[in-house]
């Protein structure tokens, strides 16, 4: 572990583990067309920690997230998630278009069997938390992309899961909006103490958000390196520290990709 602004944080290492991944492999396809998407992944995410999975497109980071979410089954290995089913957010907000914003946020509450009166109160709280109060009766198509993602965040938080998985949730938004949502996410994360596992291919985003960045190699996806980020919060995307760290992460990522390419050439 080297580079600027990266050092080992002791306090987080003492917290109990919220997501434990052991000897995880995932093979896609069968026979000749088999592709080893993930190989022998070992990963611990501690309670309340914000971990970014950083890797090139197609490196299997989304596969890993889907496995942790229980949306896909591993070929080998084990995954344990504190508190059972984690909440998930995708690049597409995937709100239900036939429900209003508040009905969308109420959906997981209803699935958990919460009474109507309590539900209404909780929905109001959550919408306030993501700054969407006043849009409760809107339909998803009436919201902007950023507002949709905020509604999706409120809905994910309504699951009351201990772990939140995010699959490039701001990938489709413009830079300004993304910056704003980073601020909001950081605020919500601090207010709720939820554990976040966040997939991104953007080193700046990882540097902006993460307590720890896990770098994945491509084909097969392996944990290539890990980096604790000790920059003070709240951070800014355009601060020199974040930019410096992002540059460092970019170089590391390039090394990993080049290393992977060299491996492939060796095999030939």
């Amino acid at each position: 572990m080297s580079g600027p602004a990266a050092s080992l944080e002791v306090s987080s290492a003492e917290r109990p583990v919220a997501v434990r991944v052991r000897a995880l492999s995932r093979v896609h396809g069968r026979g000749v067309q088999q592709v080893l998407a993930l190989e022998n992944i070992e990963l611990d995410v501690r309670q309340g920690e914000f971990v970014c999975l950083l890797g090139a497109s197609g490196c299997g980071k989304s596969t890993l997230l889907h496995l942790v979410a229980g949306l896909d089954q591993p070929t080998h290995g084990e995954i344990t998630v504190e508190g059972g089913q984690p909440a998930v957010m995708f690049q597409d907000a995937a709100l239900f278009p036939w429900l209003t914003v508040s009905e969308n946020v109420a959906f997981p509450l209803e699935m958990r069997g919460m009474a109507r009166a309590q539900r209404a109160q909780r929905v109001a709280e959550l919408l306030e938390l993501v700054h969407l109060d006043g849009f409760a009766q809107h339909r998803p198509h009436q919201l902007s992309g950023g507002m949709r993602q905020r509604a999706a965040l409120a809905r994910a938080l309504a699951q009351d899961a201990r772990v939140l998985l995010m699959d490039e949730p701001f990938g489709a938004l413009d830079a300004l909006l993304r910056d704003r949502l980073h601020d909001e996410l950081e605020r919500v994360w601090r207010a709720t103490g939820i554990t976040i596992l966040f997939v991104t291919h953007n080193p700046r985003e990882a540097a902006r958000l993460a307590d720890r960045v896990v770098l994945l190699s491509s084909r097969p996806g392996r944990v290539a390196d890990q980096l604790e980020v000790e920059l003070p919060r709240p951070r800014r995307m355009d601060s020199p520290d974040v930019a410096l760290l992002a540059g460092h992460l970019t170089r590391k990522l390039k090394e990993i990709i080049r290393g992977g390419a060299r491996d492939e050439n060796d095999e030939v």
Binding site: L71, P86, A94, F107, P108, M111, R112, Q159
Partner: peptide, 22 residues
Amino acid sequence: PPLLLRVGRTMGARGFTLFRRV
């Protein structure tokens, strides 16, 4: 869209509930 099904499942809708509500 499969994404809506995935979202529904992660929020705890299964079986007939998933059919009726999603």
